[in-house]
Write a protein that binds this DNA or RNA. Sequence first.
RNA 1: GGUUCCGUAGCUCAGUUGGACAGAGCAACAGCCUUCUAAGCUGUGGGUCGGGCGUUCGAAUCGCCCCGGAAUCACCA
Length: 691
Amino acid sequence: MNIGKIITDKAIEAIEALYGAKVEPGAIQLQKTKKEFEGDVTLVVFPLLKISKKKPEETGHDIGKYLCENLKDFIISYKPEGGFLNLLISGRFYAKYLSEAAKVVDYGLTAPTENAEVFMVEYSSPNTNKPLHLGHIRNNLLGYSLSKILKANGRKVVKTNIVNDRGIHICKSMLAWQKWGNGETPENTTIEYRKKGDHLVGDYYVLFDTEYKKQVKVLMAKGQAEDEAIRNAPLMKEAQELLNNWEKEHLQFLKFEYKVQSYLKNWHNKDKRTSNVIYKKDLEEINKILEGEIFKQRPIKALEKVKFFVLNGKYSRKKKKILLKRIKYQKNKLKDITDLEIYNFWTEMNKWVYAGFDVTYKRLGVDFDKIYYESDTYIVGRDTVLDGVKKNILVQDPDKSVWADLTADGLDRKILLRSDGTSVYMTQDIGTAQLRQNDFSPDKMIYVVGNEQNYHFKVLALILQKLGFEWAKDLYHMSYGMVELPEGKMKSREGTVVDADDLMEEMTATAREMSKELGKLEGLNDDEKQEIFRIIGLGALKYFILKVDPVKNMTFDPKESIDFNGNTGPFIQYTYARIRSVFRKGEEMGVSKSRFSEKDIELNEKEKSLLKLVYEFPLVVKEAGAQYSPALIANYVYELAKEYNQFYHDNPILRDENIQRRNFRLEMSETIGKIIKNGMMLLGIEVPERM
RNA sequence: GGUUCCGUAGCUCAGUUGGACAGAGCAACAGCCUUCUAAGCUGUGGGUCGGGCGUUCGAAUCGCCCCGGAAUCACCA
């Protein structure tokens, strides 16, 4: 039941019959009829005047008459208005459409099929030296919502995250902690409250910057120029040295990992004692672990997993003992790792941060199918780059630094390896892309990254293409605008960021206060209430961010809290809760929904426009998928909620004495509730049953 | 300076391949709860769509120029 196609086909037929000319479907322009005119669909006749060689009104009349006669029961009447032909679609068509839509549980959403295209969506991509802030929130919400939207368009989606866990930034935090930390950890910071790991590490990052700036000031007072002082400050030098040492130890660690890898790979083949003890079925399971992703990236973790498997297996105590002994033996071989002081501290600090991130992600309601770490991927990138030098695709300068020459493409030269052989940001992204291709061979790789990196991704795609990777054309940078404060950009080093955890907490608190004032949640226990506050607070935040076109920068004023009235998340959630309330009340009254006859339904204006919106939902989902824009969904759902509230205000549902109409209104309300829920789900926003 | 993006009501934003008098929300003001949730509904005021020129039957939308803002052009990430 595609209104557009039905009319377009018939209009083409009409033009041929009336004027003897064949036109392409593209020549038929349809649009929604403006509110101030009578009708539902408007055919723009201007482009057809050359063919009809008649006045606009006459042409409209001709075609309108033809459509009306040949699409009986579908188009009831027509009215040409200047160059516009307004067509009135029968209410029965829409009512019938509603009955169909009502039957489909996931109305508007298309589930992925077996051989659907695989879309990989990268988002979040935090640095491990600081907690997430408002900018990350926009990124995460966009990425998560986009994933949902693509999935609803029948794509298989792999959500991924690349954690920037190495580099000078993290060394700054490490150094500050070593100097002034006094052994503080997330577990023992109990002075006022227990600090989340990511916040703790972030605080040391700020501390580094404060102390560093002091040193620069001192040096400048002693007569050094600013850029000189910036380079010469002892703290910066120490941080750089730390980075160098970290890289050395990291390489050493990789060698250990390699050892474990080769051992595990041959475990059951070469080690007779083990393979005799272990069940064949379990061996297969263990092999699965060894061939899986964890093993490739974190062999030690894989070893732990194998251990866990053995412990939970149905083995006799004796056999378990033998198996565990084998595992322990291997782990002991790795004890050299304990000598890697910097590396181990780095690992430890990262653990604090990840634990903190996990809490934030969970609270925000986002997740990932696969997480990559820069500390793994830059090695792959470096090898590829060196290979590119061998193949003369890339150039190596006399100082050993490696470059991609993009001047022929109208861009500059881009550095890929420093003269000391260390990697840069681009190197890492080259490696990450390769790993992803290996792991998932996606049809499309979407990078949800801020527009400040437009140039970076342009260059990345170009370099990958030059390196001969066919899939380079499948990279897509979903660029979005910055979130700014009224006074300008947020700067984490200066502590002017809006913290993600704080913001979510504030939103929940606002929801709580508001609910208290309105006092509609009596009869619920504290847990239930808390859950509703959480849903509303987060809904307000998420909607506020997602309703804005991604390409645009947006300002956020922390002093003016996010609204809960008007074009907001809570408004939409409220509409849903209202609909649910109708059905609860219906149950109390003993009124339940049953079938209605489309023939007997006279739609009023509001009902018809609501049904038109119901019809549009699948089209909006499609469009949002094509444009990668959650904002389209947000604006649609708002429109739907607004129209419904107007309907609700003026029309009885349960109290309607006309039983046919009551059934219709219940059916319509239920379907609209379903659309609101599904639509909000596409934005990653939950809806409450009550509020 | 080069490149890219943005500029719509006092504020925050809609406006799909060009289509009818440019729409919402907030804020302001005036109303509506003995009736399915008032986080709602109704009404009033508010605009040279940054400016100019051009293409077109028709431009917020496309092209060129200018103005304002942002990002980027690092051996930072």
